[in-house]
Design a protein around this nucleic acid. Structure first.
Length: 434
RNA sequence: UCCCCAGUAGCUCAGUUGGCAGAGCAGGUGACUGUUAAUCACCGGGUCGCAUGUUCGAGUCAUGCCUGGGGAGCCA
């Protein structure tokens, strides 16, 4: 059985007889010719079964195989201009590995989203889902490569946490032995701050959980986030890191998957070509002015919601960095702007085309006294943050970081309507299976 | 938590004023030597989400519930 020939490498075998292992994707017939579309995970190739080239039994069987039959096909690799991949297999032998026990539920006609999500374990076999998962893989590798090349150390953050990191979101609660309850992490950031004081430049990359009852195309209850944190870095350095990071991820995905994005996902990739530094930077105050001019009735201090984000993002041809939000809107650990204490030194990156916030981050408060006051002001239990305050007690330094949601980034790159297609098995408020 | 929409064949949907439950695809049988979601002919396929009510009669009207989808808030 091994080593097998893969469809992606079929050009190397022109004129030779090879055996492919795969699954039947589709089948058509024209009398003395049967056309079998066979996929093997690396591509799809048309296998032509001509009556004169195989036994009568094989010829008859070839016309009666149901979709998703697993099979081995042996034949001659022939160049053919009518093929989308340039080659066909002229079949000599056909071996059935297994016939489907029942009719395959997903046909080649349209299906509803609810049905496909219920069949997610099978839906992954479609070309579209294969491309999305490959882009996700490339994005995750690009994330790792970017930080690794810059001397960052990957530090894994815990999944069980004793309390809310930020004290704002709703968390998933789990029983935890004699210690009462634990929570599933909502962010590894606080732990990365500790790690940055040890290793200088660090990042964590793992799953994150939010128990908010969010039912929108941008939300999952379980998603993957990358969170870098750097000692001796201020907001300006952080923003520069953000734009270089996002550009690297997008350009890597574009270089590797341009053709699939264009053909299978029908993505207008010209919109991704612009994603290069520098990104436009505007303050929250300027964003409010833009929105007021666009006719949105809002005043300074109001939240910039989904619709407003889209309006702001549409002013630019690449991601826009909105910085210096009102301090009240941000978590307790953000450093306030020394020149204007009303605003926090935070920055969000808004993706174009209505994909919204893909990054949130900023400079952290480094003063012990100011941080203690912020914890009190947010009415958070100080005991839970004593270890975090220790980071300010022993050699505190300016530092900054950010978090990027992988699913929103992949949805934007692929031009998808909903983030649920960017993760193999989505976890949402109303769905936990398959 | 709130607002809107949908639930009819395996899938996608139509179903008029309340009056015999329909189509396309998928499946089965057959035809076709170049099909690209092939085409053509024939065949099988139903707890109309669940419950109660109105009515001579409910897929259709009313009320409640369930499930799913979209959005808001919150966020990545």
């Amino acid at each position: 059985m091994f080593p097998p020939v893969h469809i992606a490498d079929i050009a190397q075998h022109e004129g030779k007889e090879v055996t492919l292992h795969g699954w039947l994707y589709n089948r058509r017939s024209s009398g003395k010719l049967h056309f079998l579309q066979v996929r093997d995970g690396t591509g799809i190739i048309q296998c032509v079964v001509f009556k004169g080239n195989v036994t009568p039994e094989v010829f008859h069987e070839a016309d009666h195989l149901p979709q998703e039959t697993s099979l081995s096909v042996t034949g001659l690799v022939k160049k053919d201009d009518r093929s989308p991949i340039g080659f066909e297999l002229d079949v000599r032998e056909l071996k059935i590995v297994a016939r489907p026990a029942q009719e395959y539920p997903i046909g080649h006609k349209e299906h509803g989203v609810a049905f496909l999500m219920e069949q997610r374990h099978l839906w992954l076999r479609s070309q579209r889902q294969q491309v999305i998962l490959r882009v996700r893989h490339t994005v995750e590798k690009a994330i790792r490569d970017f930080f690794d090349a810059r001397g960052f150390t990957l530090v894994d953050a815990p999944i069980f946490t004793p309390s809310a990191c930020e004290g704002t979101s709703t968390l998933f609660e789990v029983p935890y032995f004699d210690l009462g309850k634990a929570f599933l992490t909502q962010s590894g950031q606080l732990y990365m701050e500790a790690a940055a004081m040890a290793l200088g430049k660090v990042y964590c990359f793992g799953p994150t959980f939010r128990a908010e009852k969010s039912k929108t195309r941008r939300h999952l209850t379980e998603f993957w986030m990358v969170e870098p944190e750097v000692a001796y870095m201020d907001l300006d350095g952080d923003m520069q890191l953000m734009e270089e990071f996002v550009s690297h991820v997008v350009q890597t995905a574009l270089a590797k998957h341009r053709k699939e994005l264009e053909t299978v996902l029908e993505r207008d990739v010209s919109k991704l070509e612009n994603v290069k530094p520098p990104f436009p930077r505007i303050t929250y105050t300027e964003a409010v002015e833009v929105l007021q001019k666009a006719g949105h009735p809002m005043k300074w201090g109001d939240d910039i919601g989904g619709d407003e984000e889209t309006v702001v993002a549409k002013q630019f041809d690449r991601p826009v960095m909105v910085h210096r939000y009102p301090a009240e809107m941000k978590a307790f650990y953000f450093k306030k702007d020394p020149t204007d204490p009303k605003v926090a030194l935070g920055c969000d990156v808004l993706a174009p085309e209505g994909y919204g916030e893909i990054i949130g981050g900023g400079e952290r408060e480094s003063s012990l006294e100011t941080l203690e006051a912020a914890i009190a002001q947010h009415q958070l239990p100080k005991e839970a943050f004593e270890w975090y305050l220790d980071l300010r007690r022993y050699g505190t330094v300016p530092h900054a970081g950010f978090g990027m949601g992988v699913e929103r980034c992949v949805a934007w790159i692929c031009g998808l309507h909903h983030v649920r297609e960017t993760i193999p098995f989505a976890r949402m408020m109303e769905r936990i299976t398959p």
